Computed example of a mutant assay.
Amino acid sequence: MEYIRTLLTNLRVRDVIDIGIVAFAYYKLYMIIRETRAKQLLKGIMFIFIISALASTLKLFTISWIITNTLQVGFIALVIVFQPELRKALEYIGRTTLFSFNVFEGDEKRNERNIKEIMTAVHALANQRIGALIIFEQKTGLSDIIETGVAMDSHISNGLLINIFIPNTPLHDGAVIIKNYKIKAAGCFLPLAESQHLSKDIGTRHRAAIGVTERSDSIALIVSEETGYISYAHEGRLYRNIQSEELTELLTSIYKKDEKQTIFERWWHRDGKKQG
């Protein structure tokens, strides 16, 4: 108690700030890895450090020698094993800047036209039960995914979107990538979701939508060919069977920064819809 009292007496404002920053950094790190395999690996690393401390205290020299020599090459192994998580963390830091801006800010009429064109296309595809997957690039670049498809660099129009996803056409199975105000590519291949807790009735198209949003801050819009339901994925979570007004809010949140939190906050608190 005397030690704690002395510590609190000598505590300065800069120490509080220092502790607060470190605590916030650890919290953010935990939020990034909490639903990935890195969480289990982190538990294993902590266990090794505990064993190492006990071996050193109890003078178990053989165990200490093994652990010490293992940890010397452990850092390189960690970089290899945690590569996806490290990339995700660095991308998160890159997105969370004081001077960030919305890539979709621009002319009001152009925003409204794009929203109308996308809504028309999505509703037409849903009514005909034609599967579709549209990815909206945000701050994290998707150049590596764009390169897997056919480059287009076309203006957004409902006719073009509908034709891309018509069954038995060359590009209908892949994803469309929309960057800023243009369709950058179609027929793109996406990484599948890593989560093991997804519902068994979620198909490949929905898993791909979750997968790309696990690795970036993009927003994925999906039309189910089995049910005609419209869904979307964001931050590795799937929000299923949204209605027309919710689709309008989603597209508005993409193209109009001030209203971005509306639909995400509403769906976060809804029961029975969120998956993943």
Rank of each mutant, 00 (worst) to 15 (best):
L78G: 05
R87K: 13
P84C: 04
S100L: 13
V103G: 02
I67H: 03
A89W: 04
T62R: 00
W65K: 07
T97S: 14
L60W: 13
V81D: 03
L58H: 06
Y92Q: 04
T96N: 15
K59M: 08
T97M: 13
F101I: 12
G74F: 02
L71E: 03
I63E: 02
N111T: 10
F82D: 04
G74W: 02
E105Y: 09
E91Y: 14
L90W: 11
F99L: 12
F75C: 06
A89G: 03
I80D: 03
R110F: 10
A77I: 14
R110H: 10
F61L: 11
R87T: 15
Q83R: 12
A89R: 02
E85A: 09
E108G: 00
S56W: 15
I93Q: 07
I93H: 07
E105W: 08
N69K: 07
V81W: 04
F101W: 13
R110P: 03
R110G: 09
V103L: 14
R95N: 15
K59I: 11
I63R: 02
W65I: 09
I93Y: 11
E112D: 10
G74T: 02
I66E: 00
Q72I: 13
Q83D: 04
L78E: 08
R110L: 14
F82R: 00
I80R: 05
T57Y: 15
L86A: 02
R110Y: 11
K59P: 00
F75M: 09
T57R: 09
L60Q: 07
E112C: 00
A89T: 08
Q83I: 06
G106L: 04
V73Q: 08
S56F: 13
S56P: 00
G94M: 10
S100M: 14
I67W: 03
